[in-house]
Write a protein that binds this DNA or RNA. Structure first.
Lengths: 169, 169
DNA sequence: CGTCACTTATTCAAGTTTCAAGAAGGCCGC
DNA sequence: GCGGCCTTCTTGAAACTTGAATAAGTGACG
């Protein structure tokens, strides 16, 4: 139905194959996202993004990161992070600490309790990812997926004139 | 660092390669999602999900769908759709109509104004998708991506005992 | 020093999404 | 034809996200 007319004349629509790929992409990513969100909400009592924050902290030296660093890492706005950390703090999974070097700064620190939550829930989460993704793909497909996603990320991420990066808003 | 220990002993962690792929996936999908959301917010005054609703309606016979069908299509809950349509209605892009055949039912109908918004903004959106995704991938990669996403979707979607499907909650 | 530009983090208000209920219509067996 | 049970859709409160505005601190430069 759609051909790929070029440049000057009208917008360049997606070909049928492209459209097919695009819809599959949207379909799969929403489904997977919802699936994991739900899995984590059920088993860990938090959404995927919040879980990602804990993971980020767990991997950081001394289990702590400056707010802005953490926001960058998780690709969310600082504002959103403020709220999220407030909630995680209420759960006792994260604690704030002043930064001695820069009095404006705050560290978000993973508490032992937070670490424990991670220890307890990570296996289930990994299993979910595995079952939804890796167990279904051939090694070649896994490799291809990695390459594709890297290309896409690279095209969107780097500096991009500073615009369009959530944590800078 | 991580090997792939098997079954019985402890959870089966992701190998380093898997972890790498997974992070690339998360990274790229968040970035792309944010990017398109922002693009649409800027150019069409609505988030990606809402845009998807309009597209769904535009493609339906007589530009109308029952609420539940539309929710399924967009993979959101009926509740969320209610709120969303309320907003789109306020913008004049969608109108509700009673279903003559089933008095409980409602059609969401795309207005001319709504169609016009789509006509005006679709080219920009397609361009954004193309620029972020298709222009960067080889034909083989596009094909692979399509296949992979289909597999993933298939694993998550179908019936799955009815649980886990947002629009059924 | 003083001050001006920038960064860090939080807060507010507005909007969105979720979750749990609930109103309302239809379906089906007796 | 009526009682229970399903589906369709809406509602309202609570949780979450966003973008703009604000407070506080840094740092460079004259």
């Amino acid at each position: 139905m759609n051909k790929a007319p070029d440049s000057a004349a009208g917008p360049r629509w997606l070909t049928d194959e492209e459209q097919h790929v695009w819809r599959a992409y949207l379909h799969a990513t929403t489904l997977l996202d919802d699936h994991l969100d739900r899995q984590l909400q059920r088993d860990a009592g938090m959404p995927h993004v919040y879980y990602g924050l804990l993971v980020g902290l767990a991997e950081a030296p001394r289990r702590r990161l400056r707010m802005t660093e953490l926001a960058m890492q998780a690709k969310i706005t600082r504002s959103r992070l403020s709220h999220a950390v407030a909630r995680l703090e209420k759960n006792g999974w994260v604690r704030r600490e002043d930064c001695p070097a820069d009095k404006r700064g705050q560290f978000a620190v993973l508490t032992d309790e937070g670490f424990e939550v991670l220890r307890r829930t990570a296996p289930g989460h990994v299993a979910a990812v595995r079952q939804a993704l890796f167990d279904r793909l051939s090694p070649e497909q896994q490799k291809a997926l990695g390459e594709i996603m890297e290309i896409v990320a690279e095209g969107l991420q780097p500096t991009e004139a500073g615009a369009d990066l959530p944590w800078r808003r």
